[in-house]
């Protein structure tokens, strides 16, 4: 009987903690995209603020900020993917 009662708890935890193996890559892509969106928006915001305050409403500071944000997001995504690849190699 204990064997029957024991299984339920691990099932949900696994669903939460570890996604199905075929969805691993997709999940990473989702994260990267959201990160890109957030970082680029933040950079754009800073750029706009700087352009208004300092650069007399020029456009380029806003683009530069967005670029900074996007670059940062890209770098993070790249890092996470490479770390995953390293883990796979270590496991193999």
């Amino acid at each position: 009987m204990p064997e029957t009662t024991a299984p339920p708890p691990p099932a949900p935890s696994r669903a939460v903690s570890r996604p199905v193996s075929e969805a691993l890559l997709n999940e990473k892509w989702d994260r990267c995209l959201s990160n890109l969106l957030i970082k680029s928006t933040l950079g754009l915001g800073f750029g706009v603020v700087f352009s208004v305050l300092i650069f007399k409403r020029r456009a380029w500071p806003a683009f530069a900020g967005a670029g900074f944000g996007a670059g940062r997001a890209y770098e993070e995504c790249n890092y996470s993917l490479k770390a995953a690849a390293r883990d796979i190699k270590n496991q193999a």
């Binding site: 890559l25 790249n78 993917l81 690849a85």
Partner: peptide, 17 residues
């Protein structure tokens, strides 16, 4: 899914993916 990642090199980054 496997087909999507079938052309990945070793130590792949965002661009290769």
């Amino acid at each position: 899914e496997v087909r999507k990642a079938s052309l990945l090199p070793e130590d792949a980054g965002v661009a290769s993916h």
